[in-house]
């Protein structure tokens, strides 16, 4: 009964302030939700990139090891590899962004990174016991690369 009395009491009620408060709260909530979505999307994009980088990194590592094993087994059997050219096809963009691939022969890592963002950085180790991988950095827009074994320098170069 008392509540019914309060409902009818319109003292200190302002429609304008009520609207502004409702509008402000709605805008605040929308901004919060949208920014959460944006963060979520960004994290998902980085995760996709890392997953893709790992797949391609492992593929490259397998190719390096393949050449290295061929050279090693040929050497062990007294044979000699005169020339190897191994094609390497990488997507020009991953998750819509270009990226770079660095071959570090000190740590024996293939380092993928997109737009210098630390969250996208992936290191995939490779193994080369009989050959040396020449350090280089590839930039993804090229798309097609060739891994070449040089018997004179006993090295693998990627370009």
């Amino acid at each position: 009964m008392k509540l019914r009395g309060l409902d009818e009491d319109e003292n200190a009620v302002s429609i304008s302030i009520g609207f502004i408060l409702t509008f402000a709260i709605t805008v605040l909530m929308l901004v919060t939700i949208l920014s959460s979505f944006y963060t979520l999307m960004d994290q998902a994009e980085q995760k996709v990139m890392r997953d893709e980088f790992e797949i391609h990194g492992n593929d490259i590592a397998v190719r390096i090891t393949t050449i290295d094993t061929m050279v090693g087994s040929a050497d062990d059997s007294g044979s000699q590899i005169m020339e190897v050219k191994y094609g390497l096809s990488l997507p020009q963009r991953i998750a819509g962004k270009p990226y770079s691939v660095e071959f570090d022969n000190i740590s024996s890592d293939i380092v993928f990174v997109s737009e210098e963002r630390e969250g996208t950085k992936v290191k995939v180790p490779y193994y080369a016991d009989n050959t040396v991988v020449i350090p280089t950095t590839l930039h993804s827009p090229k798309g097609e690369y060739v891994m070449t074994y040089d018997p004179a320098a006993n090295s693998i170069s990627i370009s």
Binding site: S79, V84, Y86
Partner: peptide, 17 residues
């Protein structure tokens, strides 16, 4: 002999004593 092989992805030339 010198063996040469090539596929769509790889080209290899090696001597094979």
């Amino acid at each position: 002999p010198r063996v040469t092989m090539s596929s769509s992805q790889i080209y290899i030339k090696r001597d094979l004593p």
